[in-house]
Design a protein around this nucleic acid. Structure first.
Lengths: 205, 205, 205, 205
DNA sequence: TATGAATGAGGTTTCATTCAT
DNA sequence: TATGAATGAAACCTCATTCAT
């Protein structure tokens, strides 16, 4: 043995580099999807933006769809968790406060993970099944939230309520994507109020 | 605004045969866009579905974008007109009725022209500018509607109200696209009620 | 017979209209070829420029090549004739004058019929055979010219001389196509002088 | 001058295999351009001749124009260099010798790189801007040559002389492309003599 | 493992030419 | 005869994916 070079922690650095690479690839993918949309985004551009080669990208994600799914999956988990946090605190809030917190949560999420919306909305594309699954899971989270907040409400009502809330979140997010203007701000305020009115109505059923 | 490069418009047919062709091409295009989405729809498939050759398609629509625009344009006019009809009758209705009529109008329209929604929602695609224009025009129609229905309301309120209504229509249309179920039906009912609550609130401002 | 409308001269006006149409089609074709080159010029554009339909164009010219040939043929005849006129007058001129007249003739022709050059130069395209024929015929005209002007010259010399003159004409025409500048003007003058020098040399052989 | 939209350049290969590919692609392209001309040459045929797939061709040359430019650019450098070599030796030569060397140089070059002529002459085509640049650079080289050979000559004269020489080279090359014959050979000899006469004249100005 | 090259089906678009009214 | 519609081969180019080094 010519030299006693400290045996390097076998694969750990590899793994660590792997993690970094995956992270930068996903980040690049997110940017690209947001800018171009799912279809127009190319694997080549994603790799290039991450400073990686196309071969490297395919070493971690076998298909373009896999990239999208990894992105969606990762973000979805975070979203579920945040709704769960709201669920824990919701019982202490008034309907007014709850409406505000819900909208804030979804807008914050969209701001931080704009690719999530892009991929979730893709019309007739590959990750459609995944998107559906996620939507259902979000629905379940909202059902948990409303069920906890309005304990006496019949299950069917809770389910319908969660659905309405979900689509109003969608509306809020879409509205937020409009070019900013005083009109938009006013509309956002009123949309929050509409949600409040709805929750009040739900509570008195 | 330097106006994005606007795609050349459709060439107008000048013979009876041409008119028929254009009609069948547009119909085939609508079907294809709905089934596959804008990006995944191919000109080849559109032509084939219309029983026309690819050259024939290009005789009337110089680009894929032109096909989409022709579809959107044609349908948009119809939608404006229908909102106009509501505007005329709205003053006689209660908020309850108005909410129902609005939702019915948009759902009917979606049922008859599903491609309109697909093309209008395309996230990061070519006909985006056109879609924006149309959305603004719909907004204006709704402003007209609410302005007529609630004469005392300040302009800013009317504008914000129209925006809210528009995004709730979007929500209603999206909800309608969900797999049918009793839960969906219940949610639809409640969404209508939410709109009613909002209109009541608006009227009492 | 309800009215005695003067029986129109059966087909004469037709024919006349036909001539006009052919003329305008050829003119449009010339413009298009000059602007776009032979390959990039389209039959549709030629027809449109002439204010005719594509069907009408094909009624007179069965192929694109036929259009080019008609154009070349018509112009070539004029060119032969003009060289013939020079031939008649050349014996009275000095070499200086002859050089000037030759260059002037070709430059004038290029100015009036720029499409002739474009079509004649087309590299590996359809009308190649025709172009060759024309070139040979021009050669013959030049042979006639030089043979008449330098009666004692052996045939082989005359033939070689005509060839040299022809390629110098080509050079002159190409030079003329350069962006105008004082440098170009000076070069043109010297090219004429070079031709003169050559003719002098030829005469003294 | 707003500089016509300049086509994206060729992507440089980074592996040995890539270099070989590029070389064979360029060679195939040269053959194809010579045989068919720029417009009629197709990317498909170029790839096929090189034994490559169409995708492989586009990996290195994003457009057909890029192929042409790569060819022209590469050859042009060689031509400049060769003229430079003449420049170094020209002062020792008589005008007779210089004329012969110039013509030999251009004919040799045409024989070795026939695609250069084809692409440079393309009448109204895409690589026009590039061709112009090259022509001007050749002019400059000739200016250097004549300036060195005829030291006392005023700049304007040198410039005009270089232009004349350049167009006579064009004529010589074109003449050489004619079907071989005794007439052609004789004409070539006389063209060389004409150039000699011109250089003599230039020297005595 | 990392990289760049290779592949080729498939997409959009063009255009000479033919048809039918 | 004049016109516009119809046709489809073929061109250019893209891009997800696979290979080879």
């Amino acid at each position: 043995m010519p030299s006693q070079k400290t045996s390097p922690p076998a694969r750990a650095p590899q793994r660590k580099r792997g993690h970094e690479r995956v992270a930068s690839l996903l980040s690049a993918a997110a940017d690209t999807f947001v800018e171009k949309g799912y279809d127009a985004a190319t694997m080549t551009e994603i790799a290039a933006r991450a400073g990686a080669s196309i071969g490297s990208l395919y070493q971690f994600f076998p298909t373009k769809e896999a990239v999208a799914q990894a992105l969606m999956g990762g973000h979805a988990e975070a979203l579920y968790a945040r709704i769960g946090q709201l669920t824990a605190r919701a019982p202490q809030w008034g309907n007014d406060e709850l409406a505000g917190q819900l909208i804030r949560l979804f807008l914050d999420f969209r701001r931080q993970q704009p690719s999530f919306v892009v991929l979730t909305e893709v019309p007739a594309s590959v990750p459609k099944g995944e998107a559906l699954t996620i939507r259902m899971r979000i629905r379940d989270e909202l059902i948990g939230l409303l069920g906890g907040r309005y304990p006496g409400l019949p299950t069917a009502q809770v389910r319908a309520g969660a659905t309405v809330v979900q689509y109003m979140m969608k509306a809020a997010v879409a509205l937020h994507a409009e070019t900013a203007s005083t009109a938009r701000t006013a509309a956002q305020t009123q949309l929050r109020r509409t949600l409040w009115l709805y929750l009040d109505d739900l509570a008195n059923t």
